[in-house]
Nucleic acid binder design. Structure first.
Length: 560
RNA sequence: GCGGGUGUAACUCAGUUGGUAGAGUGUCAGCUUCCCAAGCUGAAUGUCGAGGGUUCGAAUCCCUUCACCCGCUCCA
């Protein structure tokens, strides 16, 4: 089975990550913490390199004076680093607060999950007609007269009728004798029922009472408190995305850094979400790192910029070694889009933990229109881009009241810029590079027995260790010469390792397994003519070059 | 959240009807070794996922719990 092969491959990658110190489970000695992961000595180098490659391409490489030939024009992108905890109003205006602030109850019998405030019901007195207690319920003596809370998920005017229907069935009353139903209360939501009465609640799809769990919060956002006192007033949230930090600093950046539209603000940082089901290694974590960029442009230019960023981001993954057959650009269907949006595309990777033909999201490139800047200015907008009003006719969530428009002194126009947002998951990207790099060779050993060689074919710029230096044998001055070369790499700021332990073949294999692209070996010939061998991880080929030139050569290859 | 599976050394795994743990790989040290998991000698390493119970005695039986994997469900 192809899927078993894929699972086995993924398990080997996870084992390698642990064995060689790329990724560990968080708090492992205490039994682990679901949805959280630690990066080990090699993993942290790999992840740093991913960040650095992103920052290089998204920030450092860009300048209005040096336009990318395929871009509409030249532009700047500046970096920023904003706090994880922001003013709580930020999340109300951004829409995150409303998105998932609901209490949910589960029904143990019907295996359903319901929003507490959507479940309507009425109290009624009577004897339940049911005989056997349903699965998951509180056992009830049959035909006992009591007070019950009958519920339904039916909405609006239908709710009352639906309850009558349900009650007839539950109490064995004929549908033309509904006057026999002894209602004790008007329609209310389950939120009005105290927890200690849940034994008497009959779920919308249950056949008996007491099958509902207590209401549980399903909050996307992690909560915390900012003062020593944990009161409702000082409740705060750990950011679920880094983007809002850039939107709320739009004016600061404009006023302080001589940028002109079009320009971008980029940020790399941690975000937090209470994922319901953390799964698939680091893919769905509750604490994760994002690499996001908000590109501000004139509304009329935004479709061109959207296409540009979507294509450019695809190229970035390819340039760092992701094969095109494992990468998918998935344009969202027009019906999935908010009407103001020109498009949203996901960049997806064929992770081995997914079935063949399935892809997991690495990055979303979204055209966000002026939704965010206008919301933070005027108040949270609804889908029609009007300020969403509360019952009192005032904005439901007030914006900052600050003017976040931009005056273009070339065209003499004032407008709220539109935003193109390429938002990548750093941990997912790191994981994708690991999965892509994992490779097994077979080669005979000196006894002719086939041996598996595990290689991480990481792009040299991503490899945690760039080069290893070995003395072929531990004498004749070879260790001393090798250490000298090793120090030259350290001095040049290139991450190198020295290893004199065990046979040369074993040392090469150790380096293959962690993805080190090059190994340099000092041998007998080095002592006479000053040359060393340079061995390539992928081709296994060796060339001889002067020891004095190796640092420059590797540095040059890393820049290429 | 539900159902199924798993959890023993750093990794992969063995461990009989209950009698307080083994292998291979890896790691480390020494010798050897002039290029792709070489050889010899030696060494270290386990709260048998955690907590509780039964028992004279638990890796093994029971309960609870945590984590991971698979399938549903849910979801940015």
């Amino acid at each position: 089975m192809a899927s078993q092969e894929r699972t086995a491959r993924m398990e080997k990658i996870v084992a390698l990550c642990k064995r060689r110190g790329f990724i560990f489970q968080s708090s492992e000695i205490y039994g682990g913490q679901n949805g959280f992961w630690d990066y080990g000595p090699l993993g942290v180098e790999l992840k740093r390199n991913v960040r650095q490659a992103w920052w290089q391409d998204m920030v450092v490489a860009n300048d209005p004076m040096l336009p990318d030939p395929v871009a509409p024009c030249g532009f700047n992108i500046v970096g920023i680093e904003t706090s994880i905890i922001m003013h709580p109003q930020v999340w109300k205006v951004s829409g995150h607060y409303d998105l998932f602030a609901d209490k949910m109850v589960d029904c143990r019998e019907a295996k359903g999950r319901y929003r507490l405030d959507h479940m309507k019901g009425r109290w009624i007195t009577g004897a339940l007609a049911q005989k056997a207690a349903p699965e998951g319920s509180v056992p009830t003596p049959p035909n006992e007269v009591g007070d019950w809370y009958v519920t339904t998920m039916a909405d609006g005017p239908e709710a009352g009728d639906a309850l009558v229907k349900r009650a007839c069935k539950l109490f064995g009353v004929k549908s033309n004798e509904t006057h026999k139903l002894a209602w004790k209360s008007e329609l209310s939501t389950l939120a009005s029922v105290p927890l200690d009465k849940y034994d008497h609640v009959i779920g919308p799809d249950a056949t008996g009472p007491g099958t509902l769990t207590e209401p549980r919060d399903f909050n996307l956002m992690m909560e915390t408190n900012t003062g020593a006192l944990q009161t409702a007033e000082n409740k705060a949230f750990l950011r679920p995305e880094t983007a809002q930090g850039m939107f709320v600093n739009f004016k600061n950046v404009c006023d302080s850094s001589r940028v002109r539209v079009p320009f971008g603000i980029a940020q790399i940082g941690k975000s937090f979400r209470n994922e319901i089901t953390p799964r698939n290694f680091t893919f769905r974590s509750r604490e994760f790192e994002q690499m996001e960029m908000e590109f501000f442009c004139a509304p009329a230019e935004s479709p061109k910029w959207y296409s540009y960023w979507r294509d450019r981001r695809m190229k970035w993954y390819a340039a760092l070694g992701i094969k095109s057959e494992n990468l998918l650009l998935r344009e969202h269907d027009k019906s999935e889009l908010a009407h103001y949006s020109v498009g949203t595309a996901d960049i997806e990777y064929a992770f081995p933990f997914l079935d063949e033909g399935e892809y997991g999201e690495l990055e979303g490139v979204a055209h966000r229109g002026d939704f965010d800047l206008r919301s933070h200015s005027e108040g949270k907008l609804d889908k029609a881009l009007n300020v969403e009003l509360g019952p009192d006719g005032q904005p439901k969530y007030r914006g900052s009241g600050k003017d976040l428009s931009y005056f273009d002194d070339q065209t003499r126009e004032r407008y709220v810029p539109h935003v193109i947002e390429p938002a990548a998951g750093c941990d997912r990207t790191t994981l994708a590079f690991l999965c892509e790099a994992y490779y097994e060779d077979e080669a005979p050993d000196d006894k002719g027995v086939m041996q598996t060689r595990v290689v991480l074919k990481l792009h040299p710029r991503l490899a945690p260790v760039k080069v290893a230096i070995f003395p072929l044998i531990k004498k004749d001055g070879q260790p001393e010469k090798a250490l000298e070369i090793y120090k030259a790499f350290k001095d040049a700021g290139i991450n190198a390792q020295y290893d004199a332990q065990a046979a040369i073949g074993k040392r090469y294999r150790r380096m293959d397994e962690i993805g080190t692209p090059w190994c340099i070996t000092v041998d007998g010939q080095t002592m006479t003519d000053g040359t060393v061998t340079l061995r390539d991880r992928d081709t296994l080929e060796q060339i001889r070059i002067p020891a004095s030139e190796v640092v420059d050569l590797i540095a040059k290859r890393l820049r290429a």
